[in-house]
């Protein structure tokens, strides 16, 4: 479980996060949603320790990140997996090398142990045959799978995904969402996912935090998001044309 208390983050004069308090549960897919530019990526990068923040605390299963020593931070980092928005695969390495990279960095595994583990996770993300391809030869969906494989290869306790299905076709997007949810459940990971995609919200929104103007405007789940009368949330939910049309049809049908 990850707990965030009163998190503030600015870039120069721009106050991006204005005091966010929330928590993310273990074994669940926790979604951070909000319009583009609402600070989701900044929030995630604070959680990851990539950005320094002015105020607030973030704790990982009770351990407050900013109180940790350098070596404790290092140990914690070894338990974190991250899937970046554009996959962020190392383009000078093959797919298998990408997946083995965290093992090479964090563990004392032998080459063959690393290869076995990479085989295993690549199979888990349904890419049993792609080992020797370069990332540039892989499709967007494949790259995402590799990024997920790389993120989970070292058995992380925490998994972060920044818009994991942006740039993917709707079908692949759902497959990726479901893959993340299955893995989260299977290994009881605390997973935090940034999204502005209503499909993801419905599919895997076990817990949802809605950001607006640097503040948490609402919190709930895919079970409650359609029932709320919070104007910002309904605005966001029905900003999708599809949802608008479905809703209109629904209203017309019921008249």
């Amino acid at each position: 479980m990850i707990e965030v208390k009163d998190l503030h983050k600015s870039f120069g004069d721009a106050h991006i996060l204005k005091g966010i308090t929330t928590s993310f549960d273990k074994g669940k897919t926790n979604l951070i949603i909000g319009q583009s530019g609402s600070g989701k990526t900044v929030f995630l990068k604070c959680l990851l320790g990539l950005f320094e923040y002015e105020a607030g605390t973030i704790s990982y299963d009770g351990k407050i990140f900013s109180n940790l020593s350098e070596s404790e931070k290092r140990d914690l980092r070894a338990e974190i997996g991250m899937v970046f928005q554009g996959s962020a695969l190392f383009d000078s390495m093959t797919i298998a090398e990408n997946v083995m990279f965290p093992l090479q960095m964090f563990t004392k595994m032998s080459k063959s142990e690393m290869e076995d583990r990479a085989d295993f996770v690549l199979k888990r993300v349904n890419l049993p045959e792609a080992h020797n391809k370069m990332p540039s030869e892989a499709s967007g969906g494949m790259q995402k799978r590799v990024a997920i494989a790389r993120a989970i290869v070292n058995n992380p306790k925490y998994l972060f995904c920044d818009e994991p299905n942006s740039g993917l076709d709707p079908k692949t997007a759902i497959v990726i969402d479901n893959l993340i949810q299955e893995i989260t459940d299977e290994y009881q990971i605390t997973t935090v996912i940034n999204s502005h995609d209503m499909n993801s919200v419905m599919e895997i929104g076990e817990k949802i935090v809605f950001l607006k103007n640097g503040l948490k405007a609402w919190e709930g789940s895919n079970k409650t998001i359609f029932k709320t009368d919070n104007a910002s949330v309904t605005d966001f939910v029905y900003s999708s044309n599809l949802f608008k049309k479905v809703r209109k049809m629904y209203i017309e049908e019921n008249e």
Binding site: G49, I80, M82, Q85, A88, L89, M105
Partner: peptide, 17 residues
């Protein structure tokens, strides 16, 4: 620069490198 804009540098930093 390409590693920066494609977040590969962030990926290294996340791993504590």
């Amino acid at each position: 620069g390409t590693m920066r804009v494609t977040e590969q540098i962030d990926a290294l930093e996340v791993m504590g490198i």
